[in-house]
Simulated assay, not measured.
Amino acid sequence: MNNNTHEEKTEHPTEHHIKKFQKKGQTKYSRELNALLILFFSFINLWWYKEKFFFQFNRILLNGLSFNSKIITDQQDILLGILLSVKEIIISFFPFLLCLLLIILFPPIFFSGIKFNFRSLKFNLNKINPFLGIKRIFSVQIIMEMFKNILKLLFIVSIICIYSWICFSKVLMLIVENPKYALLDGLNITSKCCLLVILGLIPIVILDVAWKEFNYYKKLKMTRQERKEEYKETEGNPNIKMRIRQQMRIIARRRMMLDVPHSDVVITNPIHYAIALKYDETCMKAPKVIAKGEGLIALNIKKIAISHHIAIISSPSLARSLYRYGEIGQYIPGPLYKAVAEVLAWVWKIRKWKKDGGSIPKKPNNIQVPSELNFTGKRKNNV
């Protein structure tokens, strides 16, 4: 057990292992990439609709700051004004919010195949265990994430401070400008600062994506013992599979024996093989094999046929060919149609004789089987 624990993960992951890994919520998708995409597309969206946003907010501010005597006397006008302002804000920001929602949801799903995992919603007392919580907080992974976020924050703050220092004179000039133009110039300064932050984040994101990719495939790798255990899990234990096959054979044999009383004729070897055939000209295009067997199974088929007054005919070559090339529940092979037709014709004559009387029909002799289907050996895998 200890050897398996310290065994190195050198094997490539299987498809089954990858799927199990993804079901646990493990993914190679970088949060930094998601944050960069949100910032980038938000910036593009705001830049594209900047004039619309500016005029909308300008109008909302003018309406909000203008004095109207009805505001004091009529409360309904106050409520209506607030609702109209909220409505205008929602309409103005709707494209931006829609774009933001799409960026948050779709990239993780498309890039890493993240699936919704409802198993995490199950109640688990370990999740509220304070000791396990403290252990997770001070884990190496959490400390590394915290260190990375601090460095990223310092880097972003540095970019903002440097840009603010360069544009300090422009920011001071906004005080003396017309409010309308001051707002536009302020938006331009802020937009350029956002663009620099986004460009500065690109190297960080590239490094994070490479690290996530490396770490993800490192975790996915398997030991040889894990591969063996997974093979047993997916393919099944050989002994258990053999028992299952044996049980399936027994069940199939019982079901086959239940179909023998519904057959029209049983063709025998006469000792080794027995094949039960059924033909209904109204719904079958050819006779079907409904039961077959050798040895004790053949004897049981004959016993059931005798007890249910099913016609039995001995034709060694035809019985061997049907046993070898016929499948249970399937139509007989085409080259055997003529030989089986002779047998069925005799069966129908027997039925007519039992009903009307007269001379007993003679059994067909020397039933010819095509040379390509002539079988003399024994089949190893029988039902």
Rank of each mutant, 00 (worst) to 15 (best):
L154T: 11
R351W: 04
I304K: 05
A319I: 01
V205H: 06
E7A: 15
V205Y: 02
D74T: 06
L33C: 04
L46I: 12
M222Q: 13
K70W: 03
W348V: 10
I137M: 15
L65V: 14
E7R: 09
V266R: 01
G326L: 09
I150A: 12
I275K: 05
F214I: 13
S30T: 04
S66P: 14
S69R: 06
C99G: 08
L101M: 10
I304L: 11
S191P: 04
I159A: 08
N374V: 01
I159W: 03
S321N: 05
P333S: 10
K218V: 00
L37E: 02
I128E: 08
S85H: 09
M257Q: 06
M256Q: 07
E11I: 05
V289A: 03
L102W: 03
K148C: 11
L46T: 03
K135N: 15
I91G: 07
F131N: 06
I301D: 01
Q247T: 09
F123N: 10
N34S: 13
E229V: 01
I18S: 07
L125R: 13
F94C: 08
D74G: 06
R254G: 09
I78D: 01
L195T: 04
A298N: 01
H262P: 00
K52D: 11
A311N: 07
E230I: 01
G113M: 08
R324I: 00
N149M: 07
S139Q: 10
I301R: 04
E213N: 14
P335Y: 08
V265L: 07
A298F: 01
I301Y: 00
Q22R: 15
G334F: 13
Q76I: 09
I90H: 08
Y231P: 02
A182L: 02
T14W: 02
F214P: 00
F40T: 11
N58F: 06
G334P: 09
D74W: 01
E235G: 08
D74F: 01
P95G: 08
F214H: 14
V343S: 00
F41Y: 09
E233Q: 15
Y163I: 12
